[in-house]
Design a protein around this nucleic acid. Structure first.
Length: 235
DNA sequence: CCAGACGTTGTT
DNA sequence: GTCTGG
DNA sequence: CCAGACGTTGTT
DNA sequence: GTCTGG
């Protein structure tokens, strides 16, 4: 579901943490698509004292070739909350390899009478927020990106039900007071399952078609700019 | 973005 | 070569 | 048996 | 590693 996100810069990330959290230098994006497998800012349960770039697209530990890694990672961009602890590909990582993925917002399309309209969804305070994820590492002589992650999806909240009005899903958003619990590997699956709820409290506005125009670079600030829709198209 | 398909249908 | 599913 | 998948959900 | 479609 979230295949399109905006990610914070290192200075933006620093506003979320005390100075003893190390923020690595990570490229930031006004918009990036999952299928480009970008490095995105991640805090892992193994290293909750740093935020580093991790490839979007989990490669399981058991991958046996680069070809298998390439074909698997594009199917592990998302992981459904409901089956996180049972799905073959994720169940080995769900208990101990959870992570937080920091975004400025994400993009989703609303189906209307006159086609689909893209929306930018973000925190009303315009600060970065955290998505729940799962990660794995894979070592191979011909592979330079040891860590890959998946963004967890869950049921849509009220706002996302209006926007993602065909799938009714949204990324798992974890409020700051749940971050340490999410990264705590001593938590039981049931306790973690209880955290994977729809999140109320984001806001959204419609945006132009820059995001879907092949001729344009969508990694520009304007991709997030609000446009005014004809009244009938709003919800 | 990019790996994989792209097609039809009686053979072994 | 081009399309398309992920 | 064993090669290939193992997943999620698209607007480019 | 484990499951499954053929």
């Amino acid at each position: 579901m979230p295949f399109d996100i905006a990610t914070p810069s290192a200075p933006e990330l620093k506003t979320l943490f005390s100075s003893n959290v190390r923020i690595h230098d990570i490229p930031s994006y006004f918009h990036v698509n999952a299928y480009n497998h970008p490095d995105i800012p991640v805090m892992t349960s193994a290293n909750p004292d740093e935020v580093k770039g991790v490839m979007w697209g989990l490669v399981p530990h058991s991958a046996r070739s680069v070809g298998e890694a390439l074909s698997t990672r594009k199917k592990t961009l998302n992981a459904a909350a409901e089956t996180l602890f049972s799905a073959e590909l994720f169940r080995n990582y769900a208990p101990h390899n959870r992570c937080l993925i920091f975004v400025n917002g994400f993009f989703e399309w609303r189906k209307g009478e006159n086609g689909k309209t893209p929306y930018y969804i973000y925190s009303p305070d315009h600060k970065p927020f955290a998505l729940g994820g799962v990660y794995a590492s894979w070592d191979h002589p011909d592979w330079a990106r040891p860590y890959g992650c998946s963004i967890i999806t869950t049921e849509a909240d009220r706002l996302m039900t209006e926007i993602n009005n065909t799938k009714f899903r949204m990324p798992l958003v974890l409020p700051q007071d749940k971050w340490s619990q999410w990264l705590d590997t001593s938590q039981h699956p049931e306790q973690i399952m209880e955290l994977m709820l729809p999140f109320e409290g984001l806001t959204a506005h419609p945006i132009s078609s820059i995001i879907s125009d092949r001729e344009m670079d969508s990694n520009v600030p304007e991709v997030q700019q609000e446009i005014i829709l004809p009244p009938d198209d709003w919800f």
